[in-house]
Design a protein around this nucleic acid. Structure first.
Lengths: 103, 103
DNA sequence: CGGGATCCGATTCGATACTG
DNA sequence: CAGTATCGAATCGGATCCCG
């Protein structure tokens, strides 16, 4: 499936409309190949719209569809939990460090 | 990440406590390798507990931790949306078929 | 019963180079 | 600017065999 979809959608939700390189900058670590591939999938699933301006230099805008917007609560919840999970993982690691120190 | 985690957690949520083969039967298509691997990950992330009974034949029970239970609303939402998404995909396919028929 | 170990093909992904 | 094309590395995942 790809781990980036969440991030892409989360960014598109915050910013409404974004250009390709704008998305790329907003998501550190993603390659243009991945970004393209996942955007194509999202577009194919009618979650994202791709709007091409016939001009030079090229301009392509991405935004969520109305259907895609129905994901909003889910995305928000996932993001919340993701943050908690990150903290939780940190705590787990610290506990493991302590055990090793005491052993 | 693995596509099975959601299913595993969903089953564990419904049934509270499940044995290995019980989970395997409940999730058609999963191999024991995948089930084992994902359960280990979930265990490592403190989302699932693994309880081993020292007896023959072996008995191992899996259940969600309290922390893992915090995923409940998220899992429910994901499941809901997953079903809607399936319907939506069917509609998209039908529309595409029509276009091809008319062309 | 509940796995672990291994082999192997399929798929994913990153890096890089090129293009209208 | 917004991609496409290609290659090789890494990971995923299924099949199979084995074990206490």
């Amino acid at each position: 499936m790809g781990k980036w979809k969440h991030r892409i959608l989360f960014e598109l939700q915050k910013n409404d409309v974004m250009r390709f390189n704008e998305l790329k900058r907003a998501i550190p670590g993603i390659t243009q190949k991945m970004l393209t591939a996942q955007l194509r999938e999202l577009e194919h699933h009618d979650i994202v719209v791709r709007k091409v301006y016939a001009q030079i230099p090229p301009k392509v805008e991405y935004a969520m569809t109305e259907y895609g917007s129905s994901l909003h609560p889910l995305l928000a919840a996932m993001n919340d939990w993701g943050q908690k999970h990150a903290e939780h993982l940190k705590q787990l690691e610290e506990e493991n460090s302590l055990k090793q120190t005491n052993a």
